[in-house]
């Protein structure tokens, strides 16, 4: 039975670690399917993390913090849209700028306003057990004894897939990323759809960041996103631009990350650095095994103007 408890802990960790990646990657999947690549996810997550913490600290309400984080990062998503969609600037360049601004701004805000605060902890999100379902062996504790944001992440992916694949809105978004001119001819607003997609992407990255500061930890730490924005960027591609693919890729990453921690805790006689790189090696190996046709949207990264 001991190994079962161990497996359960491993899978619980997998789901917890995957949640912030899932939020961010699903949001970015929408953006990229609409033809806009935003490499500034790390910056957006940091903005979300600091906003959620600051608002939760000031108001005493964690959910207000999560909401504010989504709003703040969505605002930055829209600003990114002004530069890339309206002005038609290079998306990679603007994304790189967004990373720098997010990194700088989150530390700056934290130091300027919380630098002298001594007790900086907040009450983090609580675990909500779903009755009956959590009694199922292994699966119960893994899927039904988590905080509400984890449930939200798990539901987000199938819901996003449904909207993308089965609704008019989803069809419109996908066509904007594949054939923007045809979409415009059909009477839809390319600009409007792309703005909606980057705002949504920003909001999801913001919530992913909020998860780190108010659900996972109970404080903000500078640079606490620790590369997850870049991992999420990789997950979008690895998940082949599909929300469910993003969920699976996030779970794979979460599992290997938890596994390397577990192996270290078992004092496995391997240099720990080789355990630490496990998630990154596993991602490459998985991509090799699962390789196939690329599903990259055709108009990804190409600015749209009526003239061209």
């Amino acid at each position: 039975m001991e190994w079962l408890i161990g497996l359960q802990a491993l899978l619980q960790a997998t789901v917890r670690m995957a949640a912030p990646l899932t939020f961010t990657a699903v949001g970015e999947t929408y953006g990229e399917r609409a033809g806009v690549i935003n490499i500034g996810l790390e910056g957006l997550m940091l903005i979300g993390a600091v906003t959620a913490y600051a608002v939760a600290f000031a108001s005493g309400n964690v959910w207000l913090g999560v909401f504010a984080a989504g709003l703040a990062a969505a605002t930055f998503g829209v600003l990114f849209g002004v530069v890339t969609i309206t002005l038609g600037a290079n998306q990679i360049v603007a994304g790189a700028a967004l990373n720098l601004i997010g990194l700088g701004l989150s530390s700056f805000i934290y130091r300027a306003f919380f630098g002298s605060v001594t007790n900086r902890a907040i009450q983090p999100l609580e675990t909500v057990k779903i009755p009956l379902l959590n009694q199922i062996p292994v699966v119960g504790p893994v899927l039904f004894e988590q905080n509400l944001l984890v449930y939200a992440a798990l539901l987000l992916a199938p819901l996003a897939a449904l909207v993308l694949n089965r609704t008019m809105l989803g069809l419109a978004l996908r066509s904007v990323g594949e054939h923007p001119k045809a979409t415009a001819t059909a009477g839809l607003s390319v600009i409007g759809l792309r703005y909606a997609a980057v705002a949504f992407g920003g909001m999801m990255a913001g919530i992913g960041g909020a998860y780190l500061s108010v659900a996972y930890a109970n404080q903000f730490v500078e640079n606490m996103v620790a590369g997850r924005g870049f991992i999420a960027l990789a997950i979008v591609v690895f998940g082949r631009w599909s929300p469910l693919g993003a969920l699976w890729a996030s779970l794979l990453f979460g599992f290997t990350f938890a596994l390397q921690l577990r192996l270290q805790a078992q004092s496995i006689p391997i240099a720990y650095q080789f355990l630490q790189i496990l998630p990154y090696v596993a991602t490459i190996v998985a991509m090799i095994l699962l390789r196939g046709q690329s599903a990259q949207p055709k108009a990804l990264g190409v600015p749209y103007t009526e003239r061209t």
Binding site: G6, L212, A217, A258, R262, Q266
Partner: peptide, 16 residues
């Protein structure tokens, strides 16, 4: 700086 990784590492050790 990765508070999340610290937390997970602790949970794995406790499970072990």
């Amino acid at each position: 700086n990765d508070v999340g990784a610290g937390k997970e590492a602790a949970l794995q050790a406790m499970a072990g």
